[in-house]
């Protein structure tokens, strides 16, 4: 049985004003459990309590009531901080530092061994496709490039738990695809990932389980496959049948008493078309000042039992 990485029981958070009068009841008794090696989606409309929950899990805010345990420790403890990687929703990086300096700073602040530091920074820059722009100041980066550097800094200390707040926010389709690939790659290496996003299709694609919040309460929770399953319906993708074959199939379904709701021509996604076009331009040797195609996850990102 897999270990529990995040355990939240009856979590309440009340924001108070200067006179300590209750101002906002952000969380009203949330229960949550995230297991090791799982990609967990944390969903909800604006103001539903997602960010507050994450801030509490990170130890930045203190719960009003309830129990929270992250990686077996109290949130905010040194042990816990050592093993968490976090990508904030807003770009909060120093605009006057270069991408390389920012990653190096994060590595130093996270006590990454000196002899490992440069190797990790270069590997992550390569992963996020920012090697060519590594010596430009972050203030000059586009929003998507800042997001990429954000992903890189979250991984620099090889964390066991990665919390990604809106990871695809501001990214181009190539970046979105890459982030999803990285998330899958991290899962394969046994990392636990908690994601919040408003792009539900992305969450659906990569998450094992999701929790949907509204009004500070968990409204629905479960495995993606289970909660999205349309009871009593199924989808087949086949080679396009000819007119006669189509009539034959309709008849066969009718004979068996199976109702057909819709039949449509299969189409590629716009994302696929976009990626194909950019890839083609790249192969033609056209240059860009922005982010390049990123690489694979670096080798230093270890499995859960090896990570510090």
């Amino acid at each position: 049985m897999s270990k529990t990485v995040i355990q939240v029981d009856g979590l309440w958070k009340v924001f108070r004003d200067f006179w300590l009068r209750p101002r906002v009841h952000a969380l009203k008794g949330i229960d949550l459990q995230v297991n090791e090696g799982e990609v967990f989606g944390f969903l909800g409309p604006n103001g539903s309590g997602k960010s507050t929950t994450i801030q509490i899990l990170l130890g930045l805010q203190f719960p009003t009531r309830g129990k929270v345990s992250v990686l077996g420790s109290d949130p905010g403890s040194v042990e816990c901080k050592k093993r968490i990687g976090y990508l904030p929703e807003d770009s909060v990086f120093y605009p006057f530092l270069t991408g390389r300096e920012m990653l190096s700073l994060c590595a130093r602040l996270s006590h990454v061994p000196k002899n490992d530091r440069d190797m990790r920074v270069e590997a992550l820059l390569d992963m996020v496709g920012l090697t060519a722009a590594a010596d430009r100041e972050i203030g000059d980066y586009s929003k998507g490039m800042q997001r990429r550097i954000g992903v890189a800094q979250a991984l620099v200390h090889d964390p066991a738990l990665v919390i990604l707040d809106e990871p695809t926010n501001g990214l181009d389709p190539i970046g979105v695809r890459q982030v999803k690939d990285w998330i899958r790659g991290l899962k394969k290496r046994g990392k636990t990932i908690l994601i919040t996003s408003h792009l539900l299709s992305d969450v659906e694609e990569v998450c094992d389980r999701v929790s949907i919040l509204y009004g500070g309460k968990v409204q629905s929770e479960g495995a993606v496959k289970e909660i999205l399953e349309h009871q009593g319906r199924s989808e087949w993708i086949t080679q396009s049948p000819g007119e006669d074959q189509r009539k034959e199939l309709d008849r066969a379904f009718a004979d068996q008493g199976v109702e057909v709701f819709s039949v449509d021509t299969s189409r590629r996604t716009l994302e696929d078309k976009f990626l194909e076009t950019v890839q083609s331009a790249r192969e033609d040797g056209q240059e860009t000042e922005g982010a390049e195609f990123g690489g694979q996850l670096p080798a230093f990102l270890s499995g859960p039992e090896e990570s510090s």
Binding site: L60, P88, V92, Y94, L109
Partner: peptide, 14 residues
């Protein structure tokens, strides 16, 4: 005010 302090204080022992 920018939230950078919160983000940076996630680094252990800082």
């Amino acid at each position: 005010s920018s939230g950078r302090l919160g983000y940076l204080s996630l680094r252990p022992g800082l």
